[in-house]
Design a protein around this nucleic acid. Structure first.
Length: 425
DNA sequence: TTTGTCTGCCCC
DNA sequence: ATTCTGC
DNA sequence: GCAGAATGGGCAGACAAA
């Protein structure tokens, strides 16, 4: 099916109708600013490159969002960005592209789905707080506590992704918009302007208020300053920072993950990383590339009081091909016909193991879980704890016995700790 | 009617 | 989202 | 370096089973 291999289709179009690398770039830009592969194909077939050159940024035609690379230290970031950058809060919400023409407003998701119906309140915020007649702006939509203006975790925002009961959810889970880019304003395409000038345009066009603000930012070339700003972002409930190039070439790279924007998140930093040692208690068969081996493992913490192993996450990324090949061998001797008596799990694995093998796992944070049973009921009735964005670090903890794995109590501590960090200011 | 399981050009 | 692997 | 393809948590919905 189409949509995933779209880059391949663009290649084919360039070869069939363009005949060179230059045409490929034109065709790709047409696609990136219209996100309409069908139309691009039709135009290039009927009118050739001349037709393609006429593609323009238009309100209510979503632009493919620019993405960011990742780096794990301020040093690397500043070096990559030529010594200085604009660092902005990376809010933990949903990315939204807001299109406005007069009173008409549409919101698009990162994958260019029209999500206006889910956010009538955000639509109204854009209508009221954007002074330009016509505009395409980007923002992070974040759940907030309306009393304290505190930012709430992504899980809260998820309640807004619904078809029914939108009005109720709107009252129960209010949102704020943190604007971070301007791609089009009153007839002017800004996508080929440098970021600082787009940001200035953005600030000129929004009428700031409690619920609509420009993303918090500083401009700096100082390591210490960058690091402090990062800590501040974490304390305010953000994921970290997005560091942006301020060079003349810092255009909006629609649909691309260039090095103009760089993500800096807490779990990328090796020093203060929340790594955890977990016991393999089950596995799931893989699909596609992983057919014939395990696709993911089921991992557990150790509960000292009950002497049981409680699932806390599945793990399916971070494995090299070599890891994937040797996992079945490594675990073969521990296979048991049904869930081991000392394992607590609400999930059903394809293969169960006696708790023996310990792996090191990296995660971003601890979340309340409806399916995992680690420390169930200890924070909230009926909820366990789980790991957000889990991945294998590559370390097999052969030095550890199952009972030496990270305990459920320790995970509870980690959860409490991250709440403390947010409330700290 | 309630409860469980699975899915999503899903969001991250 | 993260990560690894061909190209 | 980039695109593609594996995989994660978790929510509301859809639908099946009890």
């Amino acid at each position: 099916r189409l949509g995933i291999a779209d880059m391949t289709v663009l290649d084919a179009l360039a070869i069939a109708y363009g005949g060179g690398k230059e045409s490929r770039e034109l065709i790709e830009r047409a696609y990136n600013i219209s996100s309409d592969l069908g139309r691009v194909a039709k135009v290039v077939a009927e009118n050739g490159l001349e037709g393609i050159k006429k593609f323009k940024v238009m309100v209510f035609e979503p632009i493919r969002p620019m993405l960011a690379e990742r780096l794990s230290s301020p040093e690397e970031i500043l070096e990559k960005l030529g010594g200085k950058c604009i660092a902005e809060y990376k809010y933990d919400g949903e990315r939204v592209q807001a299109h406005k023409k007069g009173n008409e407003v549409a919101l698009y998701s990162r994958r260019m789905e029209r999500i206006s119906d889910q956010y009538p309140d955000a639509v109204e915020l854009v209508r009221r707080s954007v002074s330009a007649e016509e505009a395409i702006l980007e923002a992070e939509c974040v759940a907030v506590d309306i009393e304290t203006n505190e930012l709430l975790p992504f899980q809260e925002l998820m309640h807004r992704r619904r078809k029914y009961g939108v009005e109720e959810a709107m009252e129960q889970y209010p949102v704020s918009l943190f604007m971070f880019d301007a791609l089009y304003v009153d007839g002017r395409d800004l996508t080929l302007k440098a970021y600082p000038s787009r940001r200035t345009q953005l600030e000129n066009v929004i009428k700031e208020n409690d619920r609509v603000k420009p993303a918090r930012q500083i401009k700096t070339g100082n390591l210490k300053e960058l690091e402090n700003f990062f800590e501040e972002a974490i304390e305010d409930g953000c994921e970290g920072l997005i560091c942006k190039s301020v060079g003349t070439d810092s255009v909006y790279q629609a649909g691309a993950r260039g090095w103009m924007w760089i993500k800096y998140k807490r779990d990328y930093k090796s020093e203060m990383t929340d790594t955890v040692d977990l016991v393999v208690v089950g596995a799931f068969y893989g699909r596609g590339k992983r057919a014939g081996t395990y696709g993911a493992l089921l991992l557990a913490t150790y509960n000292h009081e009950s002497d049981t192993f409680e699932t806390v996450t599945k793990l399916g990324t971070g494995f090299t091909d070599e890891d994937l090949k040797k996992l079945p061998e490594l675990l073969r001797n521990h296979i048991v016909p049904r869930k081991h008596s000392r394992v607590e799990s609400s999930l059903t694995a394809d293969v169960w193991f006696e708790p023996k093998v310990v792996l090191e796992v990296l995660g971003a944070e601890i979340t309340l879980s409806p399916i995992h049973v680690c420390a169930v009921d200890s924070i909230r009735k009926g909820s366990g704890l789980a790991i957000r964005f889990p991945r294998f670090t590559g370390k097999y903890r052969t030095d550890k016995k199952a009972e030496d794995a990270t305990s459920s109590t320790e995970v509870v501590e980690m959860y409490r700790n991250q709440l403390k960090q947010i409330g700290a200011s």
